[in-house]
Amino acid sequence: MKDYKLEIWATLICFILVAFIGGFFSSFVVILNEVFFYQVPTPEGLVDFYGETMFVIKEHLTVMGFPLHYFLLVMFSWIGVTIIGAIWCFIMDGIEERQRA
C-alpha cells in the first residue's frame, strides 16, 4: 500500500506541476496577474496602465533579453517538464523494481 500511495501522490503532484507550467502558465502570469493583482480588467484599463502599446510587460523584468513571462513559459514548458518527467520516471522505476521483487 505504501508504493501505491507513492505512485498516486507522485503522479498527482507531477501532473499538477506539468499542467500548471505547461498549460496555464502564460494565462496566469500574463492575464490573471493583470486582472487580479493590478486591477486592470479591461482593455481600456490596460492602455491606461501600460501606455498606448498595450504591451503587458515591465521593462526591468527581462531575462537574456526576453520578457520574464515569455522566458519562463518557454523554459518551463520545455526544460521544466523534461525534469519533472525524469523525476517521475525515477520514482516509477523504483516502484516497478519493488513490484517485481
Binding site: 505547461g22 502564460s26 513559459l73 514548458s77
Partner: peptide, 9 residues
C-alpha cells in the same frame, strides 16, 4: 508550450 508539456502528461 502546452503541446510540448502534454507529452509528459
Amino acid at each position: 508550450a502546452s503541446f510540448t508539456a502534454a507529452f509528459i502528461g
